[in-house]
């Protein structure tokens, strides 16, 4: 039998390398997935440009961060990116409203089929991706400043006396807090405010919403505003955590869509749960468990290999596989969404 300390060490090890990062990554995906869900259920198309919109919001944040830093408008220890996020949200909102006005509106007014609008959104995705790459360049950029850790692994070890440390990064804490706040606000908005209820009514039964005198333009504009808020925050949190590169953001589309479908298409709660299913699966399946089992198993049974189920380079395949399994076994997703 392993000692109590060994079990504790194993758990801390897993928390530090899998559970906490998965929680953070899941929260980032959840915000993106919630944005996709809002567009899907209110504007009625699957928005393929979501991940690239996140890249745009993040790019704006990075530019503003640079400007604020050059002016010395920073708070010591606090990520400047979070200071400028409200401004970046404003710019992203304007950008999304322009795509609505110049692109999507035409198809909406002409009652285009959903699949047509999906194709259009793929076009927007490429334009948005190109635009971001043009502005930012293809290289990876780190824009997190301020204190990197709330507490380090070393501080944790000194505090707890264990041989494993659980570090808490600033980016992890901000992600979890900000994601909770953003999701809470969106749900409050949809459940309690008049325009939020009108958005749900519009999503439920568009014709009846029009007959009730709900202004469709206002619903569409408000939806894009909410989407811009979620999109920018999701992008910035992901960037603070893992750095920014346009291509890496582009790849986020797969786990985001997987989250939406796994949770149940069109269900906001499903999108959030789906995001955590995807993030935890990705992390749990690509982690090398050797050290974890060294703590738990007797010396005689110590593993020789890394005990890694899948290499990290295949982490996107995990989303794919979960996606396929869900579509085969339970096409409506966890929360009974629509079937594609």
């Amino acid at each position: 039998m392993p000692s109590f300390d060994d079990v504790l060490n194993a758990f801390i090890l897993l928390s530090n390398f899998v559970l906490l990062p998965a929680l953070t990554y899941g929260a980032q995906l959840a915000l993106g997935a919630l944005a996709v869900t809002l567009v899907y259920s209110i504007l009625r198309f699957a928005n393929f440009s979501q991940a690239n919109n996140m890249a745009f919001g993040t790019a704006m944040t990075i530019l503003l961060t640079g400007f604020f830093q050059s002016q010395g408008w920073t708070i010591s220890g606090f990520p400047t990116a979070l200071l400028v996020v409200p401004l970046a949200i404003v710019i992203t909102t304007i950008c999304l409203l322009l795509t609505e006005r110049w692109v999507y509106r035409y198809y909406r007014i002409n009652n285009a089929k959903s699949i047509t609008v999906v194709m259009v959104s793929i076009g927007v995705m490429f334009i948005m991706g190109g635009l971001v790459q043009l502005i930012m360049g293809p290289e990876q950029q780190i824009f997190a400043d301020g204190a990197r850790f709330i507490w380090t692994a070393r501080e944790f070890k000194a505090f707890s006396g264990l041989s494993e440390g659980l570090a808490l990064k600033t980016s992890q804490l901000t992600t979890i807090l900000l994601a909770l706040l953003a999701v809470g606000l969106v749900f409050y908005f949809l459940q309690k405010t008049k325009i939020g209820k009108a958005m749900r009514a519009f999503s439920d039964n568009e014709d009846l919403a029009l007959l009730s005198g709900i202004n469709p333009d206002k619903v569409v504009r408000t939806t894009w505003l909410l989407v811009a808020i979620l999109t920018t925050i999701a992008g910035v949190l992901f960037g603070l955590d893992k750095g920014f590169s346009p291509f890496q953001y582009h790849l986020l589309l797969l786990p985001i869509f997987a989250s939406v479908i796994v949770g149940g298409i069109g269900s906001p709660l499903g999108a959030i749960v789906g995001a955590f299913v995807i993030s935890f699966s990705e992390m749990l399946l690509t982690y090398a468990y050797k050290k974890f089992f060294i703590y738990l198993l007797p010396t005689a049974l110590e593993p020789d290999s890394l005990l890694q189920l899948i290499g990290t380079e295949y982490k996107y395949a995990v989303s794919f596989v979960i996606l396929i399994i869900v579509l085969l076994v339970k096409p409506t997703g966890i929360f009974k969404g629509k079937v594609l």
Binding site: K194, K197, A198, R200, A201, D204, N205, D207, L208, A209, L211, S212, G213, I214
Partner: peptide, 25 residues
Amino acid sequence: AFVPQNNNIFPTMSVAENLEMGAFL
């Protein structure tokens, strides 16, 4: 005021919210 033949309610909203939407204007 018009009551359509089909789809004349908001199914995922509460009864009270349905009535509230009627008074939207």
